[in-house]
């Protein structure tokens, strides 16, 4: 499997990950060689095999829908990059 520079750019956009223009070629090479490794999976016919998501075939345990967390807003906001009036600040989204 070989990717092109445009593929890498569009994957990077999906991942919301900035990559420098001058490193795109290196990602093309690295990712293509990883995908070549991954393509070995196709040597095996797995049709009809039930996919395994949890290694113990367990499903998520549910709990009662009760509030168990206390308010720790100040503690959590103390480590945020930019807060004001108890809110997280980001650049304007709606004009």
């Amino acid at each position: 499997m070989t990717l092109k520079a445009d593929d890498v750019r569009s994957i990077a956009h999906l991942a919301r990950l900035h990559i420098d223009d001058d490193s795109v070629d290196r990602y093309v090479d690295d990712l293509s060689s990883i995908l070549t490794l991954v393509d070995q999976m196709n040597q095996i016919d797995s049709s009809g095999v039930k996919p395994l998501a949890n290694p113990l075939d367990a499903s998520q345990r549910l709990r009662a829908d009760e509030v168990t967390e206390g308010d720790q807003r100040e503690k959590f906001q103390a480590i945020a990059p930019d807060v004001a009036d108890g809110l997280y600040r980001v650049p304007r989204v709606i004009e």
């Binding site: 990712l31 990883i34 995908l35 991954v38 196709n42 095999v49 996919p51």
Partner: peptide, 24 residues
Amino acid sequence: LIGTYALSAGYYDAYYLKAQQLRR
């Protein structure tokens, strides 16, 4: 990047689902 690609529309079955079958 590889993980995003493997989960993206049109590739999920070929990569992630296939890998989960081999996992079993």
